[in-house]
């Protein structure tokens, strides 16, 4: 019962006035994110991350988790009112929530959804805390083959249980798969199905870890091989097509000194951020830092 004692300790920490206020803010923010279709709970959490930099760790985690659960409930609002799930997790709410709303019981449906989301989240947290050790042992045995089997069963049952034509279900599912493959391949790092439309933007971007000129198809003379960091040779030359950035170095000289590192972290996490380029044009030392970073990574890889 060690887990249970720790859970109670957690509640003791979380249930202070300050933290409960943060929970309310987080759930409200989560509602906003959850109502928007396409912006799911994980996206919301990653959007909220910069807001938590200035907070103490416990408050930050509480804000992020409340926002997560708020977003999970927020998805059911649109399911009930418009029959459009705002989240993948609230698809099932459309089955009975929307008919209730049509009968004029939208308020009751929303209240029930909120209550059940709360009870479900609470039960889930308690159960997962008590069973986490056992579940982790099971999860470790879950490999690639098992994942494939689970996904295959899910997609096969979509086709088997579809009401109309199975061909249409197949086509719409595969269109979704095709959309998911657009962009950077997570394994090889190549850009797929972009038809070089990303090239004009990429010219202004850092060489990504995926831009390896190894494949003969990406001939060096055609694409210029590895893309150059803008301003590496010239060291912060003003770029002609961005005349209003010329004053940036002086402005950024006073900016938060940690900012380039933070932006670089975002870049390594795959987020593209135009402000990073402004920083890089303004601050040659950042390029040096990046080179060190890469060397550090190369060393790490060799060791591994």
């Amino acid at each position: 019962m060690g887990n249970f004692g720790q859970l109670m300790d957690g509640f003791a920490v979380a249930l202070s006035t300050h933290h409960v206020l943060i929970m309310i803010i987080g759930v409200l923010l989560g509602l906003v994110v959850g109502v928007l279709p396409g912006l799911g709970a994980p996206n919301g959490v990653s959007l909220l991350l910069p807001l938590t930099f200035g907070m103490d760790p416990i408050s930050a985690i509480i804000l992020l988790t409340s926002m997560y659960w708020g977003a999970l409930f927020g998805g059911s609002t649109t399911s009930i009112l418009f029959n459009i799930p705002g989240e993948p997790s609230s698809v099932a709410t459309t089955f009975d929530g929307y008919p209730m709303a049509r009968q004029g019981e939208a308020l009751r449906a929303l209240t029930l959804a909120f209550g059940s989301a709360g009870i479900g989240a609470m039960t889930g947290v308690v159960v997962i805390t008590l069973l986490s050790g056992w579940v982790a042992q099971f999860a470790l045995r879950f490999g690639a083959a098992e994942y494939f089997a689970v996904y295959f069963m899910a997609f096969a049952s979509f086709i088997g249980m579809s009401g109309g034509s199975p061909f249409k279900t197949l086509v719409s599912m595969m269109l979704g798969f095709a959309c998911a493959t657009i962009g950077m391949d997570t394994i090889s790092g190549e850009s797929r199905l972009t038809f070089e439309w990303d090239a004009p933007h990429r010219r202004r971007q850092l060489p990504h870890r995926g831009d390896r000129p190894v494949r003969p198809r990406r001939a060096a003379d055609h694409h210029g091989g590895r893309r150059q960091v803008p301003g590496r040779e010239g060291q912060a030359q003003p770029v002609d097509d961005l005349p209003h950035h010329r004053g940036a170095p002086a402005l950024l000289g006073d900016a938060d000194p940690q900012r380039p590192d933070r932006l670089l972290d975002g870049h390594h996490a795959g987020r593209t951020d135009r402000r990073l380029l402004h920083e890089l044009r303004a601050r040659p030392p950042v390029l040096q830092a990046r080179r060190e970073l890469r060397q550090g990574r190369a060393r790490g890889r060799r060791r591994a």
Partner: peptide
């Protein structure tokens, strides 16, 4: 598998499904 392996067969399935429909 090369990067285009999975999307290629997804595209084939889209064509097949469209033909079926």
């Amino acid at each position: 598998p090369e990067p285009g392996y999975f999307p290629f067969y997804v595209g084939c399935l889209i064509i097949l499904g469209s033909a079926g429909a």
